[in-house]
C-alpha cells in the first residue's frame, strides 16, 4: 500500500514538475490533467471513492477543457512554444516570494489543524452519508459556495458577452 502511495505521489509531483518546465503550453496542460488524475488516484487509495470520481468528472472532464480552450483561443497553435525571457534576479525573487507565501499559508493550515481522528480507523462513509452530511450540517457552506460560483459565472457571462448586434441571417 505504501508503495502504491509512493508511486501515486511520484506521478503527481513528476507530472506537475514537468508541466512547469515544458515550453509547450498544450503539453503542460495535458500533464496537468495527468497530475489531477494522480490526485484522483490518491483519493481512491485513501478510500474516498466519491471524491475521486468527482475529481475526475470536474477536473479532468471540465476544468481541463476550460484550460485547453483558454490556451487555444488566446494564441495560435503554431506559437504554442512560449518564448520566455531570460531569468533575472527580479523574476527569481518574485517567484520565490510567491512560492514562499503559498507555502507558508499551506504550512500554517497544516500545522494549526488538529487531526483528531488521525490515529483511529477512517469511518466507512457511503455516498448517502456524504449527501446527508452535505445537505444537513454543511448545507450553509454548500449553498454559499454555490451562490459564489453562480455569481462568478454570471459575472463572466456579463463580461464576455458582446453588445448584441442584429444579424440578418440569424433568425432568433
Amino acid at each position: 500500500m505504501i508503495l502504491a502511495l509512493l508511486l501515486i505521489t511520484l506521478l503527481i509531483l513528476a507530472s506537475a514538475a514537468v508541466a512547469m518546465v515544458l515550453r509547450n503550453l498544450i503539453h503542460s496542460a495535458l500533464l496537468l490533467v495527468l497530475s489531477w488524475c494522480g490526485i484522483a488516484a490518491f483519493y481512491l487509495w485513501a478510500g474516498a471513492e466519491f471524491v475521486a470520481f468527482a475529481q475526475i468528472l470536474v477536473y479532468v472532464g471540465a476544468i481541463s477543457m476550460v484550460v485547453l480552450f483558454a490556451v487555444l483561443l488566446t494564441r495560435p497553435a503554431r506559437d504554442a512554444e512560449l518564448s520566455v525571457p531570460a531569468v533575472t534576479v527580479l523574476r527569481v525573487a518574485a517567484g520565490l516570494m510567491a512560492a514562499g507565501m503559498v507555502a507558508s499559508i499551506l504550512g500554517l493550515a497544516v500545522l494549526t489543524t488538529r487531526f483528531s481522528g488521525a490515529a483511529t480507523r477512517a469511518p466507512q462513509l457511503t455516498v448517502k452519508d456524504l449527501g446527508a452530511l452535505l445537505a444537513g450540517p454543511h448545507a450553509a457552506a454548500l449553498l454559499v459556495t454555490g451562490v459564489i460560483l453562480t455569481v462568478a459565472l454570471l459575472g463572466a457571462v456579463l463580461i464576455a458577452a458582446p453588445a448584441p448586434a442584429p444579424r440578418p441571417e440569424d433568425h432568433s
Binding site: 495535458l30 471513492e49 466519491f50 468527482a54 475526475i56 468528472l57 479532468v60 472532464g61 471540465a62 481541463s64
Partner: peptide
C-alpha cells in the same frame, strides 16, 4: 460493484473528449 458507480461511469465518459482533443491538436 461500486458505491458511486454512476458517478464513476460519467467521470470515465467525460475524459474521452480529452483524447479527441489530443488527436485533433
Amino acid at each position: 460493484e461500486l458505491d458511486a458507480a454512476v458517478l464513476y461511469f460519467f467521470a470515465a465518459g467525460a475524459a474521452t473528449e480529452l483524447a479527441i482533443f489530443m488527436a485533433g491538436w
